[in-house]
Computed example of a mutant assay.
Amino acid sequence: MPENNAMVYLYIDDGTHPVAALNTPVVFNLDTTKLTDGVHTLKIVSQFDQKEGLKIIPFTVRNGPIIHIEGLSENETVSGTLPLMLNAYDTGRKQSFIIKGSENPRTIPVWVWLIALVFVAWAAFYLVTNFSL
């Protein structure tokens, strides 16, 4: 009886040996803990009869702790001494509900201060103009 399913071979990055050879349809769990943090590619080669298909999917692995820095941005021009606030933390298991970065102390953004200042100025103007004797 002829086989009606395709065979797929999974390659990570520029690997010459597949990490898996599977008959489709199949559910495959890709263990990213064995990969370094950074950009990788998953190459899927399918074979059915005498035909071959190819799909390449770039993805980024971030298994290590998240690093947050205040006081220096990418490609910023700086001089002198810079006070930097650094924090590194793990996001935990992906199955649990965790607000990403919730335990990271951050400064209040300038736009929040501006909105608060505008509101206080408007409230003061309102009070002075409507309740003056």
Rank of each mutant, 00 (worst) to 15 (best):
A6G: 13
P2Q: 07
V26W: 05
F48W: 01
P109H: 07
H68D: 10
L42N: 06
T32Q: 06
K100C: 02
L10K: 06
L117R: 01
W111F: 07
G64W: 01
I99R: 11
T33N: 14
T16M: 15
L82I: 13
S79F: 03
L35H: 02
L72W: 01
D13K: 06
A121P: 04
W113T: 06
N23F: 08
S102K: 13
K43Q: 11
V26G: 01
E52Y: 04
T129K: 11
N29G: 05
K100E: 10
V45K: 09
V45W: 00
E52P: 00
T24M: 05
V78M: 05
F48L: 02
V110A: 06
T24Y: 01
A124M: 09
N130K: 14
E74R: 14
I108M: 12
V112G: 02
L10I: 15
S79A: 07
S102F: 14
D13Q: 04
S132L: 11
F131V: 06
V61P: 03
Q95M: 09
V78Y: 10
P109Y: 02
S102P: 00
I66P: 02
Y89G: 08
D31G: 07
I67P: 00
A21E: 12
R93F: 03
I115C: 13
Q47W: 02
D90A: 12
L42M: 14
